[in-house]
Amino acid sequence: MAFIQGLFKTSVARKNIMAVTGLFTVFFLIIHLVGNLILIIPDSFFPIEFWSNVANQHDMYNAYSHFLVHFWPISVVAWILYIGLAIHVIDALLITVKNWKAHGEKYVKIDNSTSNWYSRNMGILGTIIGIFIVIHMGQFWLKYKVLGTEHDLYELVVGTFKQTWVLVLYLIGIISLGFHLAHGILSAHRSLGIYPKSIMNVMKYIGLCLAILMAVLYGIIPLIIYFQ
């Protein structure tokens, strides 16, 4: 057992943890996105027949959020996500500190053309995303779910996104997320040891496409609401 514990301290194991928690978050992000796309369904789509009580976007969105809050398995997954994100952050800090220590004196002149800037700055991107998440949760999760001061989430969301500073903040957060994923998805697969060339060649594009898709779709929501 001591041996296994020892292994978890190794650099590779730590990267494994980053990968697993990261990929789980990506999975969440996809679900989260799908739900929130309700916010940009044009009014002409309503009423939607298969869901009896959905007459408009407002109702549909509130029904969706009501479901999320009251369906218990979702809460379990949510807690896994919170813990996962916390581990992701702590692990990132541990790795970063170790990597700083591993570095000797700084180069006087450095040429970084051999790698992408966002690959090198995952920590900074992650910090921006982290700050964003805190604000984001404070705006919605805290008020709607924890404190219960707000009951109409749709009104809250639309109201919030009408503010310019919120829009700017969200765009920064979402673009950071896009770049974080552009590196992170492929990197996570490498960390987990998926090495066949055929898979990884495809993965490179899947990772990138997914990152762009997420950034664009997430970005479009506040933009549309802001300009509506």
Binding site: G6, K9, T10, S11, V12, R14, K15, I95, K98, N99, K101, A102, H103, N112, T114, S115, N116, S119, R120, M122, H183, L186, S187, R190, S191
Partner: peptide, 21 residues
């Protein structure tokens, strides 16, 4: 891997710079 860590090398973040040089 243990020796790699003990010698004080950092962990890989897959920037890919190594393979370029």
């Amino acid at each position: 891997i243990t020796a790699h860590d003990e010698e004080g090398f950092g962990s890989c973040t897959h920037t890919g710079a190594c393979a370029m040089v």
